[in-house]
Nucleic acid binder design. Structure first.
Lengths: 239, 239
DNA sequence: CGACCGTTTGAATCACCTCAAGAGCGGTGG
DNA sequence: CCACCGCTCTTGAGGTGATTCAAACGGTCG
């Protein structure tokens, strides 16, 4: 149950043998509930030797600047493995924060590496997963560097829809996104005031509605066109 | 010779056995010279089954938006492995571009994977390398999202100094950086006009000089303080 | 020499920010 | 039950960092 969505994500990236899938599903771990607005640094999670898979809620990797600003560098939706980098490298100033009340499945690091040794194919698969997350990060760089607030917002709504499997061509797309406008701003590098104004404009144009933490996309094609969104970077097809 | 600096980078990230280092150094490949401003899409380089290590010059990963803007998502300095992601995942819209006349060492993909199979320890090492690049990418996200032009520029000069091993505490730091102001802008998400004005301001303040493609940092500590630069994310110490 | 590329600078404009204040709303306590 | 608090959303007015358009300057190369 805990890792179902995670396994689904991996399967989208490439073939997964029966044995490999079984090895993943049977990874021992425990559920941890996290209240909203709790920060838990990755270093803490790695010192307790845990790999975290988000089951429910919304997490973010974040980075606090000296000026007191907080930049969210990645959003994690259910099924995401949150701190894969900490498996091989200790990253000092990065931390995880819960944007909404969340539940994670914590796997001991040893169990994880054991599974990889017994099933070497998993290494390649997880590497591929890691690469797919890099592509998402790349896209965030493009948003922050080259898109205005309007496009960034549209793009993010598209990305999260696809990542959660909610995108659909013809009909209205709707999904829950338990995030505050303030946090949206921290992710997109703009102030919450400007997030608010931009959301209103998008709502008035009928491009996308975000209210009460629910995203409604009346016309998927129109939004993706506005956002310059190309889902190719998410599907991560094999060569 | 070709891979000396690359091996040095890897050794900074963790232990490297004699055999592993030897396996890397003896990777067969050929030198390719690339003129400035040439784009070669990663898909091309992967279809010809090549892994690229930069020997000399300056490359960038880039992404062209529909509006015709170009966002540079990563800079590659000599010793960098440029397209590690394409080893496991085909990324469609991304491409490599030469910012200056460059020389790369191209290794056949098969030779690379063979070496990894004969020396499984290399997998972890390369994974660690990949993670270290992600940390750099994270830092770029912070720059684009939370730092102004001034800080971004300072931060980039610091980062490139450390990545090339040119940073030094007390004395003046100097290194060549074959990049145009126009390309700096593409990397930092600002216009070349604003790059120019900001560089002038930094020069007048004596924080950092960038002229004729040479970076001069009179006072390393002062610059890192201004930039909010913490080299921790580059050293990537082991846990 | 003219053509070209990159740099430099000015003036006007725009996207976004800062400061500030009010409104809605659920939670808590008297 | 109402008063009060804190949190989030909302909106206004003014300011600033960065952009756009435009033009001039300097070096390099054929």
């Amino acid at each position: 149950m805990a890792l179902t969505r995670f396994v689904e994500q991996l399967r989208r990236l490439g073939p997964l043998s029966e044995a490999e899938e079984q090895a993943l599903r049977s990874l021992p771990g425990r559920y941890v509930d996290v209240p909203a607005n709790l920060d838990f640094s990755e270093s803490i999670s790695s010192s307790s030797e845990r790999i975290l898979v988000l089951v429910e809620g919304l997490l973010a990797s974040c980075y606090d600047t000296e000026e007191g600003e907080r930049q969210l560098t990645a959003l994690h939706v259910p099924g995401d493995l949150c701190d894969l980098n900490s498996l091989v490298l200790a990253s000092k100033p990065m931390c995880l924060t819960a944007l909404a009340p969340s539940r994670v499945y914590a796997v001991a690091r040893g169990a994880f590496t054991d599974a990889m040794q017994r099933h070497p194919g998993l290494i390649g698969i997880l590497w591929r997963y890691s690469s797919s997350r890099v592509l998402i990060l790349n896209e965030r760089v493009v948003s922050l560097g080259s898109r205005d607030a309007r496009q960034s917002l549209c793009h993010l709504f598209c990305e999260l829809a696809v990542r959660q499997g909610f995108s659909s061509g013809g009909v209205t797309t709707t999904y829950a996104l338990p995030i505050k406008q303030h946090q949206l701003g921290s992710a997109l590098g703009i102030t919450y005031v400007h997030v608010n104004r931009t959301l209103r404009a998008l709502r008035e144009e009928g491009l996308v509605h975000f209210q009460h933490q629910i995203v409604t996309i009346p016309n998927w094609d129109r939004l993706t066109r506005q956002a310059g969104f190309d889902p190719g970077y998410l599907t991560g097809y094999l060569q």
